[in-house]
């Protein structure tokens, strides 16, 4: 016990000397001042972020066994869920967690809406938040195709059909998203790349803006 304390102190001293670590921790974590009216409703943003981190973690684990080809996709997901030790846990955490994250994001948005927290000076907080919502939903949509089940396939068919209603470029847009006239293996690998690389990076960029702005402006005051 004493040894841990000692090591802890030495590490913090070392960091203090270079980066003012203790002061940074005091200002940003332990003695950070927030409004008195803060309550549990204000947790949804943070919980959404926590959910996102969990999705990243479980997603990386799933990538280690998932095979993004029409022939192997379903079998590899079934292998994860049935054979790989604790695969069921990570697979379900990821698929159920996706729904939970969507719910949390919606609750967060409703809270902000109800409290009018989107008003000046937090307009861009709202705008970046709407982008985050859209990216979260795009994540869910692209992830839904990956197990390559009947539901995935027809869900993706319907979802990618919708941009077809766009005037003039509609048909072209549909085929751009699909990478082919119908949903094929090309769509699968395309969605996989978007789901696992493009959207997470975009999401992190928007999260960065979202967080930096709220640090600068502060959480909204009482109603």
């Amino acid at each position: 016990m004493e040894l841990i304390k000692d090591i802890n102190k030495k590490v913090l001293d070392w960091l203090d000397e270079r980066y003012d670590a203790r002061q940074w921790i005091r200002e940003n974590l332990t003695e950070k001042l927030v409004h008195k009216h803060i309550n549990w409703l204000y947790c949804f943003g943070g919980l959404s972020f926590l959910g996102f981190l969990l999705q990243i973690g479980t997603g990386i684990f799933l990538m280690m066994y998932y095979i993004p080809t029409p022939k192997d996709a379903l079998a590899s997901v079934q292998n994860i869920a049935n054979n790989v030790p604790f695969g069921w846990l990570f697979q379900r955490l990821h698929s159920i967690g996706a729904n939970v994250v969507n719910l949390l994001v919606m609750f967060h948005m409703l809270r902000v809406l109800y409290h009018g927290a989107y008003k000046k000076p937090r307009e861009f907080q709202w705008v970046s938040g709407v982008f985050l919502l859209l990216i979260t939903m795009a994540m869910s949509f692209t992830g839904y195709l990956l197990p390559w089940t009947q539901l995935s396939y027809w869900g993706a068919t319907i979802g990618t059909e919708m941009p077809g209603a766009t005037p003039i470029i509609g048909e072209w847009l549909v085929q751009l998203i699909r990478g082919s006239a119908q949903i094929t293996g090309i769509t699968l690998t395309r969605f996989y790349a978007i789901h696992a690389v493009v959207l997470p990076l975009t999401l992190i960029a928007f999260l960065g803006i979202h967080f930096l702005m709220i640090r600068k402006v502060g959480i909204s005051g009482p109603m």
């Binding site: 684990f61 280690m64 790989v84 030790p85 604790f86 695969g87 846990l89 990570f90």
Partner: peptide, 8 residues
């Protein structure tokens, strides 16, 4: 524990 088992 689940992570180690999963990755083994």
């Amino acid at each position: 524990y689940p992570i180690i088992r999963y990755l083994s």
